[in-house]
Design a protein around this nucleic acid. Structure first.
Lengths: 150, 150
DNA sequence: GAAGAAAGACAGGGACCCTGTCTTTCATTC
DNA sequence: GAATGAAAGACAGGGTCCCTGTCTTTCTTC
């Protein structure tokens, strides 16, 4: 540690918007997956959110999931295969198209989804306790506007 | 596309704070690296920010960089090696400790850093034009408080 | 019926991160 | 001053996530 300069440029500006946006997101994501691991789902990792997030109730094709998640069919197929191996989704033939298979959530997948929902609600409640109700609402509103503006 | 339900749960709640935080960060990061690529630095990728961001003017050991960036020495060593191969940093023996080497930015590295600074300033200015000065200041303030609260 | 498009499977590779191990050098302690 | 443990970095190997390219099967369109 002896080589560390006490006041480098990078340390003097922690108000960089990028860092301010990334930090809470990463912290929350990490905690979510720790929460999963502690509740019997250690094999679900951040990229697998790209599957659950885009799954329709009626089942969804891998190619559609890939398009929604902005990754290639091959990458999405691998994520789906992993989740299938661990019992979170199942693939059934699409009755309307013999080329296709429909990816669908299993009960275990639904359980995970419920766990995630709970965690998100609890995390936002925690932030609200710390920041205050008005400020968190304001923050959410501003973030919505920023997202809309981009 | 025929299998897509028009109104899935995931689509009805784009006000999830995690998504609202992640989206603008990712967009800005992508654009930054496109900007790099367009200006002669196609070999600098997002994780390499973990090197520049923590580099002191006087040079910094790989082990210190690793600790600051929260990755292992091995991972950091690989990032540094890549940047060294492409001329952005150099490693010189630490005069005070023959085990150690000091990672230091080259002129090319400084050029990249300047490019990044410019881009960040321009991006924030763009956001200010779209949101308005008051709202962006408010957003930054709230994000600072959120970060401090975590 | 033939041609092109679309869904998914399979092969292979790159980037980034990890654990484990080794050598060299330093710091501490007897 | 020698021995021991810690620290810096190098090297080997592996896992995850993503990619490009190619192939077969099936559907759609003309």
């Amino acid at each position: 540690m002896s080589s560390r300069a006490p006041d480098t440029p990078a340390r003097r500006q922690p108000e960089n918007l990028g860092v301010l946006l990334r930090e809470p997101f990463l912290a929350a994501s990490e905690r979510l997956h720790e929460h999963f691991a502690e509740h019997g789902h250690p094999d679900v990792r951040p990229p697998h959110g790209n599957v659950f997030q885009f799954l329709d109730d009626g089942g969804t094709r891998v190619s559609v999931l890939a398009e929604r998640a902005q990754v290639t069919k091959q990458s999405m197929a691998e994520l789906v295969a992993h989740l299938e191996r661990h019992g979170y989704v199942e693939r059934t033939p699409d009755p309307g198209d013999r080329r296709a298979k429909l990816v669908r959530s299993t009960p275990r997948g639904a359980e995970l989804y419920a766990l995630a929902r709970e965690f998100v609600i609890e995390t936002e409640a925690e932030w609200e306790r710390r920041l205050g109700k008005a400020k968190l609402r304001q923050l959410r509103q501003l973030l919505k506007e920023l997202n809309a503006a981009i």
